[in-house]
């Protein structure tokens, strides 16, 4: 299983709410391919255009606060972001993110050590590294990564059910 993630930093502040991630009025767009173009449209109009596979968001406290809509983590993932590293996450966002296949890492301190465009490396269950500085992170069990790698909870269970031969 993949244990490290490396990518380019998108730096954001505290209290990034679900409306900032994807404005409520965009919530009715029928496909994710179309909706993802509006991710962070008010805060970072360059995000949807310039983000690429493997990018990593680094943010402050309370990332994902606001509504419980699952589209918020989903549009971040659809833009290629693999992980969000933040000081803290809103609870519902936290559960939704893993369940749709986006990795979240809680880490305090790294926010002051990197800027937009810097490289960052995440060594799962160990540390976050950027610009020569390292910060410890907590443990996430393997089966949560399986959910993420399968593309979210629904797909993960579908796969398990298929392996069980539909039993």
């Amino acid at each position: 299983m993949k244990r490290t993630y490396q990518g380019r930093v998108w730096k954001m502040g505290d209290d990034i709410d679900t409306d900032t991630i994807i404005p409520g009025k965009r919530g009715t767009i029928p496909t994710m391919d179309e909706m993802k173009k509006y991710a962070f449209e008010l805060l970072r109009p360059d995000f949807a255009k310039d983000s690429k596979a493997g990018d990593i968001i680094v943010a402050g406290d309370n990332f994902g606060c606001g509504s419980s809509r699952e589209q918020a983590p989903a549009v971040i993932k659809a833009n290629g972001v693999t992980c969000v590293v933040a000081k803290s996450f809103a609870r519902i966002f936290f559960r939704n993110a893993f369940n749709i296949g986006l990795i979240l890492i809680e880490c305090d301190g790294v926010q002051d050590a990197c800027q937009d465009g810097d490289q960052i490396e995440i060594d799962i269950n160990n540390k976050v590294k950027t610009n020569g500085k390292e910060f410890p992170i907590g443990n996430i069990p393997d089966n949560l990564f399986e959910i993420v790698n399968d593309g979210g909870l629904v797909n993960h269970i579908k796969k398990l059910n298929a392996v069980k031969g539909g039993k």
Binding site: L144, L153, V154, I157, L160
Partner: peptide
């Protein structure tokens, strides 16, 4: 928990 997680947990018996 929400209904998606409930369905998943009922299937696997696990919940994080």
């Amino acid at each position: 928990i929400g209904t998606t997680e409930m369905a998943g947990a009922l299937t696997t018996g696990e919940l994080w």
